[in-house]
Computed example of a mutant assay.
Amino acid sequence: MAPVNYLLLLALGVAQFSSALSESCTKPEVSASAYTTPDATVLVNVAFVAEFTLKCSNGAKGIPLYAEINGRTVPAARIGDDKYQVSWTEDVKKARTGDYSVNLYDDEGYAALRKAARSGEDPSTVKPLVTIVVNYPGAYTGPWVNSEFMAAVLAVAVWYVAFSAKSKLLS
C-alpha cells in the first residue's frame, strides 16, 4: 500500500507543478525604475538595468518572464515574489540616447515569440504581456579636447612667445 501513496503524492506534485507553470498573469500592472551607466570615459559597454514590480489582478506570483530588447531576448531575474530585474549591455559607440522599449513575455508569449522567429514571421506581431521603457540620457565620454592636447598646444605657444621675445632682444 505504500507504493500507491507515493504514486498519489507524485501525481499531486506533478499536477501542482504543472498548474503553477500554466498560471498566467491577467491585467498586469508594472512599476519600474532603471539605471544606466552615466560615465563611459574608460568603459567599452554601457550597462542598462531595469528593476520592476509586476502585480497581476488574479494574484499570480513568481511567473517566469522574458524580456525582448531590440530583437534580443534575455530572461528576467526574479528578485522577489513580484520583483524582477532585466539587465543588458550595449557598445558605447552603438548605444543611442532616448527610450528603449523592454517587452516582457510570460512562458506562452515567449513560446509564441520563438515560434514566430523560427517560421520567419515578424516577431512584433506577438503581443507582449507588458512593456516598460528605459530612458538613456547618454553617458559622459570625456572632454571634447584631451588635456594632453591642450598641454602640447600651450607648450608650443609658450615656446613661440619665448623664441619671439629672444629674437627681438638679439636683433
Results as ranks from 00 to 15, higher is better:
residue 47 A to H: 14
residue 23 E to W: 03
residue 60 A to G: 07
residue 157 A to M: 08
residue 95 A to D: 01
residue 101 S to E: 15
residue 110 Y to M: 11
residue 16 Q to L: 13
residue 25 C to W: 02
residue 116 A to W: 05
residue 163 F to V: 04
residue 67 A to T: 06
residue 42 V to A: 12
residue 126 V to D: 00
residue 5 N to H: 13
residue 118 R to Y: 13
residue 36 T to E: 06
residue 119 S to P: 02
residue 87 S to Q: 14
residue 157 A to T: 13
residue 78 R to C: 07
residue 74 V to Q: 06
residue 6 Y to D: 12
residue 130 V to W: 00
residue 151 A to S: 08
residue 169 L to E: 10
residue 15 A to C: 11
residue 60 A to V: 04
residue 171 S to E: 13
residue 60 A to T: 07
residue 72 R to T: 11
residue 148 E to T: 13
residue 148 E to R: 10
residue 4 V to I: 02
residue 17 F to A: 15
residue 83 K to S: 13
residue 1 M to Q: 09
residue 132 I to F: 01
residue 91 D to L: 09
residue 51 E to L: 11
residue 60 A to M: 00
residue 99 D to K: 12
residue 11 A to T: 11
residue 1 M to R: 07
residue 29 E to I: 10
residue 63 I to G: 00
residue 146 N to G: 15
residue 29 E to N: 11
residue 153 V to N: 00
residue 31 S to W: 09
residue 40 A to C: 14
residue 131 T to N: 08
residue 58 N to Y: 04
residue 4 V to M: 06
residue 62 G to C: 07
residue 137 P to Q: 12
residue 121 E to F: 14
residue 118 R to T: 13
residue 135 N to Q: 11
residue 37 T to K: 02
residue 149 F to S: 09
residue 1 M to E: 10
residue 37 T to Q: 06
residue 8 L to M: 15
residue 104 L to D: 05
residue 96 R to E: 05
residue 70 N to F: 06
residue 50 A to P: 02
residue 11 A to H: 05
residue 13 G to R: 08
residue 168 K to D: 15
residue 41 T to H: 03
residue 151 A to W: 10
residue 72 R to E: 11
residue 80 G to P: 09
residue 131 T to Y: 07
residue 155 A to W: 08
residue 116 A to H: 06
residue 105 Y to K: 00
residue 37 T to P: 03
residue 158 V to W: 04
residue 82 D to H: 08
residue 18 S to A: 14
residue 106 D to T: 03
residue 171 S to A: 15
residue 71 G to H: 08
residue 154 L to S: 13
residue 134 V to L: 14
residue 150 M to H: 08
residue 162 A to F: 08
residue 92 V to P: 01
residue 167 S to N: 08
residue 68 E to W: 05
residue 77 A to M: 10
residue 107 D to M: 05
residue 69 I to S: 02
residue 161 V to Q: 04
residue 44 V to N: 15
residue 34 A to E: 12
residue 111 A to Y: 12
residue 68 E to L: 02
residue 19 S to K: 12
residue 69 I to Q: 04
residue 165 A to G: 06
residue 111 A to M: 14
residue 99 D to V: 14
residue 12 L to A: 09
residue 46 V to R: 01
residue 4 V to P: 00
residue 160 Y to D: 04
residue 88 W to M: 01
residue 106 D to L: 03
residue 100 Y to S: 02
residue 158 V to E: 00
residue 171 S to F: 13
residue 91 D to K: 10
residue 5 N to R: 14
residue 112 A to H: 09
residue 15 A to H: 09
residue 51 E to V: 14
residue 66 Y to K: 02
